[in-house]
Design a protein around this nucleic acid. Structure first.
Lengths: 142, 142
DNA sequence: TGTATCTGTAACTGTTACTATTACTTTTAG
DNA sequence: CTAAAAGTAATAGTAACAGTTACAGATACA
C-alpha cells in the first residue's frame, strides 16, 4: 500500500490516550512517553488533529490537550483523513508510462479507477470504527 | 497507507500488456518501453509474478513472456498478494510503544486488529476485479 | 558448435520520504 | 517576571524503493 508513515497509528494512539486520561491532564511530553517518540513528533501530528477539529489544546504553564468532541463521535475515518489527506492512494499509481503505447497510455487512468474503488471501500470500513469503541473494548475505562 | 512502492501498479501493467499483446511476442524490453522503466525493474517484478504462477517465461533467443492462465482468472488480489506479500499493513502499526503504559501497552494489538479488518475488506474488493475485465473494458482487445 | 538474444540475478547508487532531534518563539498561570 | 508547555522551523539520520550496470544461464539458429 502506498504510504509508509506511522502518523495514522500515532494519531489513533494520541486520541485513545486522551480519552483514557480524560480526567487527568495530558501534555505532549506525557503522550511522547506513551508513544515512545519525541514530543516534537507528537506536536507535529497534533497540528493535523487540531486542524481537523478532533483535539483542542491550551497554551501556558498548565497547558493541556483534550478531545474536541466525544470519543464516540470520532471515527477512524476522521483520523485517517486528518493524517493522510494528501495521500489518497492505497497503492502508488505509476504515472510515467509511455503515452504512445496503447496500454501505457491508459494504465494510469485505469489504476486510478481501481484505487478510487478500493479507497472508498476502505473508508466505509474506517467510518464504522470510533475512538470510543477502541478505548471501551480494548483498553477499558481508566 | 503503508507501502510506497509502485510494484503493484507495474505488475498490473505488465499483466494487462501481456493480455493485450497475447498474439505477439512480449519481451522485458518491450514491457520496459510501455512502462517506461528499466528492463531490470520489469524482471524484478516478473520474478514475483512467476513465483505466484501468474506468468510464465522462456529463455533464449526467441524468449517470451506469457500469462500462465486466462486473464479472466487473474484477480487483482492475486497480483496484490504476489507483489505485496511481505507487506500486510494498510498503515504502519507503530510497535515501539511504552509497555509500562496502560494505553501504550495495548495500542499495537488494537491497531493490528484494525489493520486486519481493513485489509480483509480491501482484499475482498480486489478479488472482484480481473486483468481480463480491465483490458476488455479499459483498453479494448488489441 | 558458436554466437546472438533474452531472462535471471546480484550489487551498487541515487532519491525520496519519513522520524528524530534541536532550538527557538509564543502563550499563559502564578 | 519567570517557568512550563504548545507552536514551529530547520537539520540530520535512516530506510526503502527505483534506477542502473554487469554478468551468468539458457536457447534458437546459422
Amino acid at each position: 500500500m502506498a504510504n509508509r508513515s506511522q502518523q495514522f497509528s500515532v494519531a489513533v494512539h494520541i486520541l485513545c490516550f486522551l480519552e483514557f486520561n480524560k480526567n487527568g491532564r495530558t501534555t505532549s511530553e506525557l503522550l511522547a512517553m506513551s508513544v515512545n517518540a519525541n514530543p516534537a513528533v507528537i506536536r507535529r501530528i497534533m497540528r493535523k488533529l487540531t486542524k481537523a477539529g478532533l483535539i483542542a489544546s491550551t497554551l501556558g504553564t498548565n497547558a493541556s490537550i483534550t478531545l474536541a468532541k466525544p470519543a464516540d463521535q470520532i471515527t477512524l475515518l476522521d483520523v485517517h483523513r486528518a493524517t493522510e489527506e494528501e495521500n489518497r492512494e492505497v497503492f502508488i499509481v505509476h504515472r510515467g508510462t509511455n503515452p504512445t503505447c496503447p496500454v501505457g497510455s491508459k494504465m494510469p487512468y485505469l489504476l486510478e479507477e481501481v484505487n478510487a474503488q478500493v479507497l472508498t471501500t476502505m473508508e466505509k470500513e474506517l467510518a464504522g470504527m470510533t475512538i470510543g469503541q477502541m478505548v471501551k473494548d480494548g483498553i477499558g475505562i481508566g
